[in-house]
Amino acid sequence: MLSSIFGALGGLILAPLAGGFLSGVDRRLTARLQSRVGPPLLQPFYDVFKLFGKESKVTNAWLVFSAYVYLMSSAFSLFIFFMGGDLLLLFFVLTIGAVFQVVGAICVPSPYSQVGAQRELLLMVAYEPILILVFVGFAMCTGSFMIADVFKLDSPLLLKMPLLFLALGYALTIKLRKSPFDFSASHHGHQELVRGVQTEYSGPYLALIEIGHWLDLVLILGLCALFWHTSVIGMLILVMASLFTEILIDNITARLTWQWMVQKQSLLLGMGLALVNLLWLYVA
């Protein structure tokens, strides 16, 4: 028990390093796809250190509270993941962070962050059900919601839940704010929303959000890895493939508008994939 706690804590300390490095890879790959050289691999760390060195400037103190709660919830849900804990608990703890990021954005009377927050809420409506359904898929295969029980299975879950894996990829794109679902906080310097839901977070508090985002990245890739738990190489391949696909999709798709997302029922596409897979598990 104690060793697993220490293991999880160790993982938690390493996670920001891995997450930062992965987002460095992301930026580099994106640059190459766009025929640029791109920043050094460690650029995200430089950015965050620089942000920490900035003077704090906020409109409303609640924003600071929200930033810390967001980081805490990301860290705690990652801790639950490393402990092999309950997937539903992990999901609910992750929700705390998402809710507080939005609360922080709404508590400032700024049109940019408010619109970003509303869009973020819409995106949450799109990805939360998918995550729940994916976790239910795990429960149907292992008989419990415990992550530890996944490792008791003999064959990779990918064979049983391929569509759920795709659906998870869908949720992943939204959670990582990649195109075409990056309309709540665009990364690409577009004019329309400045930084959407993150407009008002600045300096050290933006750094906290950034670290929280790295942790989320590690968590989600970890979830992807669970689909091929039987071999370490398999896990690595799956994680790398997912990440590369995400980056590719990010670069070859245009951003949606939220109306498009609701009207074209793309909201339901991921859930539909998940549902079909669940029904299949139910029958098989």
Binding site: N60, W62, V102, V103, C107, V108, P109, Q118
Partner: peptide
């Protein structure tokens, strides 16, 4: 729920 909570503490 989330947007309501945000509104309550909104301030400049």
């Amino acid at each position: 729920w989330a947007r309501w909570a945000g509104i309550l503490i909104s301030s400049a």
